[in-house]
Write a protein that binds this DNA or RNA. Structure first.
Lengths: 160, 160
DNA sequence: GTTCGTGCAAAAACTTTGCATTATC
DNA sequence: GATAATGCAAAGTTTTTGCACGAAC
């Protein structure tokens, strides 16, 4: 918590993340293995706003000893539980992940022409969502909002 | 178009749906087969607001000649194209479908305790979404909004 | 008669799991 | 030293596909 800072810059600091991860693992009596540490490092190194499990597996393809596919999947799910990583499903068949630590909640705009993903945050929308949930007697925990369409670039190029 | 009517009642009328489906198929030079007709009938018979491809396959399990799994999948995708059925992905691994014909657009509240799905529509939210898209230079075509949480029933029962 | 659709089983795509071995605590 | 994690390959899920046969236009 101490070292936390909100930055959008390419490299988020690994120490803060490791601290958070480690304390989560301790609380759950889980272990901080070399693989889990490496996966976290690769996530930062890749510096992609959104990545898949397979992107991560690729990172270890030429490395020996390898970090296996199974470990990548298992680790991602631990990191989701730890609140370090967020999991999304954007219409495609595979899950998409993003680092959530130190980042503000946001929703997504998805270009159906080029598949690029854009982020947005709108406070009024958040309030309205809470209101809707409450009006149905719902105790909302989280939400997922995706707006599909054609991004400005694609529209200009005539890709529709 | 002529026979269309907005009803929420258990049975939506099959004739209107068949009309719409048939004219779509003709426009695309596709054929109205007995299987496609049967699938549409089963969707109405099941009378579930949301169903999966497998729910539909089940409907044909004891029937001979069978309507195959492959045909169910292929037909659903034609019906989605025709605008008769809408496809969703609610966090689970499988796709969920619902009849869209004659129904107003709406979004979903999903109870993470009992998996029940509730629908809502909020005009302000729709406007806000358009505004957000436009402010990013996006030409929005559609959106998907899901609010996850605990429904009133589950909350009352202490299922959390 | 042509073209499109169907059924079947096999494959594909993604993710999870069983089990013996190894690393962390 | 006890427990949890790993690697591997095998199995699981859901959806898609190739191909020969049959139905709709």
């Amino acid at each position: 918590m101490a070292r936390s800072s909100i930055r959008k810059s390419p490299t988020l600091d690994i120490d803060g993340l490791l601290d958070k991860f480690e304390s989560f693992l301790q609380k759950k009596t889980l272990k901080l293995t070399s693989q889990r540490r490496q996966i976290l490092e690769k996530i930062l190194e890749m510096d992609k706003t959104h990545f898949t499990a397979d992107d991560l597996v690729d990172q270890f393809r030429d490395q020996r000893p390898r970090v296996s596919k199974a470990t990548v999947y298992r680790s991602l799910s631990v990191m989701v539980e730890a609140g370090i990583v967020e999991e999304h499903q954007f219409g495609d068949s595979h899950k998409v992940y993003e680092l959530s630590e130190g980042r503000q909640h946001h929703d997504h705009l998805i270009c159906t022409a080029c598949s690029k993903i854009f982020e947005f945050f709108n406070a009024d929308m958040e309030k309205l969502q809470d209101k809707v949930a409450a009006s149905h007697g719902f105790h909302a925990t989280h939400h997922s909002q995706k707006i599909f369409g054609i991004c400005a670039d694609c529209w200009a190029k005539g890709n529709r």
